[in-house]
Each structure stands twice: as C-alpha cells, then as structure tokens.
C-alpha cells in the first residue's frame, strides 16, 4: 500500500498539491505571455527550493513565458501562474508583463509589423 514512492506516474498527485492548495497566485492576473527570468538571487537560492520551483528557476535562466514554463514542466497553466507569482514575490524571478495599452500603441504595432516584415 505505502510502497508506491517509486511510482513514476506523477499525475497521481493533484496538481494543486504543488501550490499548497492555493489556486490564487500572489498576483492572480499574471498573463500567460508574461516573461519570466531567473534573478541572481534565484540562481543562488536554487538549493533551498523544492522540485517545481527549482525546475522553474533552472528553466528560466533562459527567459520564457509563463505558458512555456507550463508546457515544458507539464504543469497546468493555473499552477504555473501560482508558482511563478510566488517566485516573483520572493525575488527569485523577474517578470515582465505586457503593457495594458499595447493594443492601442501605434509605435509598438508598427515595430511588430517591421519585425515580421523582416522575416524571410
């Protein structure tokens, strides 16, 4: 009964167990495209962290979105959001969120147009 520690099927865990039962991130509005980058503090604190948090810190040495974190660690988006927001609150990752006014920002739209036009 109890000798199941070697069971590789991690999906037996309820996803929200990883977030200690919380489903509301510290900042629950964090966007799925928000960029996550491990800070120097995070990089040096990696030993103190448990599995998923440690994985995120390792992964985000290369900056990526919350959605990428979720996909690469096979976490539900909601769980990834909670963990990333927690790590940000601790200063272990730096996040850059989209600007609310981007859809009205002519210069930004123009910039994206130029960037796409240069794709070959």
């Amino acid at each position: 009964m109890s000798g199941r520690a070697d069971d590789p099927d991690v999906s037996l865990l309820r996803p929200y167990l990883m977030t200690s039962g919380r489903t509301k991130p510290v900042d629950h509005t964090i966007e799925i495209e928000a960029q996550v980058m491990t800070s120097n503090l995070g990089a040096t604190s990696v030993q103190n962290l448990t599995f998923e948090r440690r994985d995120i810190i390792s992964l985000c040495r290369r900056t990526m979105s919350v959605a990428e974190v979720a996909a690469m660690l096979k976490l539900h988006i909601g769980v990834a959001r909670v963990l990333v927001a927690d790590l940000a609150a601790l200063g272990y990752v730096v996040i850059r969120r989209p600007e609310a006014e981007t859809p009205q920002d002519l210069r930004m739209i123009e910039r994206v147009i130029r960037g796409l036009e240069s794709l070959r």
Binding site: E33, S39, R96, A100, V112
Partner: peptide, 22 residues
C-alpha cells in the same frame, strides 16, 4: 502608473523582452 508592472532592474542584469500576442 505602470511602474509595478515592469521588471525590477536591480534584480537582473538585463530586462526580459516585452511580450505581445496574436
């Protein structure tokens, strides 16, 4: 108004890129 939405430059040597989406 958006100062708390951006990365804190003190914590990191460089800034993550601004994300936009379609």
């Amino acid at each position: 108004m958006d100062s708390n939405r951006s990365a804190d430059p003190v914590l990191a040597p460089k800034k993550p890129p601004a994300p936009v989406k379609i």
